[in-house]
């Protein structure tokens, strides 16, 4: 008995070290490409083009970032993306809690029916063309509304929020009702202050969604003054069609090519920074949100 215990603990130790090695490899595989891009963005154009950059910056410079912030398109994109993210997220969160809270209350007559109506949309939708024609007939194509209204609500988030609201005891609402507190007042004064964790989750998920979205802009917007950052990123990073004003003060073709490559790295860093900087601070909430959504989905 004693011997088997020792023997097993040896295999257990071996197993555990395999687990640690496995997780370390995972960690490196995810971190390395990110660090490489970060380092390349701080390196000199020639070091990037000739492939000298691995994990640390080579010939540290801020040329790439200078080029990014000299580009008028990118600044316009940043401005637009901030606007869509802030306004869009406010609309999203408001709509989500407005729908989710009554659905969590047993005294809300007809909630079963509404719930079915909502959940059904998760599994069946009209598709791209009918959606586009609807937005077009509402006159929203090529307006800023198209970036806010068609995605005003994500059904999945409603279900997560509803699950959270259901955890607030019904007795609390009953007691408040007895004391003459209206549903609206109870919602604003009691429920919302109790719901900070879920509000944080909703803000985060929706804001990230807005910041990263490009599809609605691709199909609904024509006018480049309204483009969000992601569309400009696509043009520069993927279609390779940057406008030339960021390269005007460079004359040699070789340096221009190098700067073009470098610019991509800096642009990737600059555009992802807002989200990735906030992320560690809100990670706790966001994990909680996924758990709320998963345990009772």
């Amino acid at each position: 008995m004693n011997q088997t215990l020792i023997k097993e603990s040896v295999t257990d130790k071996l197993f555990l070290s395999i687990v640690y090695i496995f997780l370390s490899i995972v960690l490196i595989l995810i971190l390395f490409p990110l660090l490489h891009i970060l380092s390349a963005s701080f390196s000199s154009p020639s070091a990037v083009t000739s492939g000298k950059v691995w994990l640390w910056p080579v010939d540290f410079t801020l040329v790439g970032y200078k080029a990014v912030f000299q580009n008028s398109d990118i600044l316009v994109g940043f401005g637009n993306s901030f606007f869509y993210t802030i306004v869009g997220t406010l609309v999203n969160v408001a709509f989500t809690v407005m729908l989710a809270y009554p659905l969590a209350r047993k005294t809300f007559y007809g909630r079963g029916l509404i719930m079915i109506l909502i959940v059904f949309t998760m599994f069946f939708d009209g598709g791209l063309i009918p959606n586009y024609l609807l937005v077009k007939s509402l006159g929203m194509v090529n307006t800023r509304w198209a970036m806010i209204i068609p995605g005003a609500l994500a059904v999945f988030q409603v279900i997560i929020a509803r699950t959270f609201f259901q955890s607030i005891p019904e007795e609390l609402a009953e007691a408040a009702e007895m004391d003459g507190c209206s549903d609206m007042r109870f919602f604003l004064r009691i429920v919302l202050p109790l719901s900070k964790p879920i509000l944080a989750v909703l803000f985060l998920m929706y804001a990230v969604g807005h910041w990263n979205a490009y599809f609605n802009a691709l199909i609904y917007l024509k006018d480049s003054s309204m483009f969000p950052l992601q569309i400009f990123l696509r043009n520069i990073l993927i279609l390779n069609s940057e406008n030339s004003d960021m390269l005007t003060n460079v004359n040699s073709l070789l340096v221009q090519q190098g700067l073009k490559d470098l610019l991509k790295y800096s642009l990737i860093v600059v555009s992802s920074a807002p989200v990735l900087i906030i992320y560690p601070f809100v990670q706790r909430h966001f994990v909680k949100g996924v758990m709320i959504g998963s345990l009772k989905g």
């Binding site: 990110l34 990263n212 979205a213 990123l233």
Partner: peptide, 18 residues
């Protein structure tokens, strides 16, 4: 491991291309 979830599709594809 959670972090890449927050990177946009455009940037992910750019990283791939680069």
């Amino acid at each position: 491991t959670y972090a890449p979830y927050f990177i946009s599709t455009v940037v992910i594809v750019s990283i791939l291309i680069v």
